[in-house]
Amino acid sequence: MIFSEEQLERYSRHFVLREIGVSGQKKLLNAKVLVIGAGALGSAALMYLAAAGVGTIGVADSDCVERSNLQRQIIHRTENIGTPKTASAEQTLKEINPDVSVILHSVQVSADNIEELILPYDFIIDGTDRFETKFLINDACVLLKKPYSHAGAVRFGGQTMTYVPKSGPCLRCLLGSVPPHEQNVSCSEAGVFGAVTGVIGSIQAAEAIKYLLGIGELLVGKVLNFDALSMNIRITKMSKTDSHCRVCGENSDILSLAENREEYELQGCRACNGDNK
C-alpha cells in the first residue's frame, strides 16, 4: 500500500519502532478489532486502537450516553448525553483518525447474535460490565476460536487477561461460571475510579495490537491485577488450561451458546439495572 503524506506523519512514531515498522503499520491498517461495550473500558481501548491505525473497528453497545458515564467514559462528551453510545463513539474515533472504518453494532449481545457479530473480526475486546455477558463473550470466542481480551474494573481496582485459542486458559478456566448474583457489584452501587478504567482499557488495546503484530508477550495464562490506591500491580500466572473447563477443556459440555443461554441471561434486579462500567 502507498501511504499518503498525512499517514507518513501520522504513523511516523510506529515506523521507527523495530517491532512495528512500515510492515507492522500495514498489518494494523488491514486488521479488524471489535470492542463490545463502549463504556469506560471500551472508551480507552477504542481510542487507542483508532490512534494506532487499526483499520476497522467495531463498536457494539445498545445504550445511550448518560451524564454519570462522563466521569470515566472519555470517548463520550457532554453534548452526546442522550445519544446512542455507538454513534457517540464513532464521532470521537473519526476525529482521532479518519483512516479508520468504524462499524456500529447498536445491539445488546446475546446467545442469538454474538457469533455472527464476532465472526468477521481478528480480535475481540470485552468492555462489558456484567459477568453474564463476560461469560457469553468468553464462550463465543472459545467456540469460534477468536482471541480476546477479558477485563473488569470496579472501585479502585481492575484486572485483565488475554485468551488466545489453543494457547492458554479462558475465563471459565479461571472462574468456572458466573459468580452468584450476591457477589456481583455494579459500578452504580460500588463506585468506580475513572483512571483505573483507562489503565485497564489501554492495556486491552495494547494486547490487541501486540496480538495483531505478533510482538511482545501477551497476558495469556496470566491475570494482571491493578489497584490504583496502593499502586499494587500483580501478574498472576494461571495453571495451564483447565482440562475440566466446561467450554475449552477436553470433555467440554458447552458446545453451543443456545444450549447454555440461561447462564448468559442478565439476572434482573436493581443492581443490574444500574449503569454500565
Binding site: E5, E6, L8, E9, S12, F15, V16
Partner: peptide, 8 residues
C-alpha cells in the same frame, strides 16, 4: 523523520 512527508 519530522519532515517525512517531503520524501514524496
Amino acid at each position: 523523520m519530522d519532515n517525512i512527508r517531503h520524501l514524496y
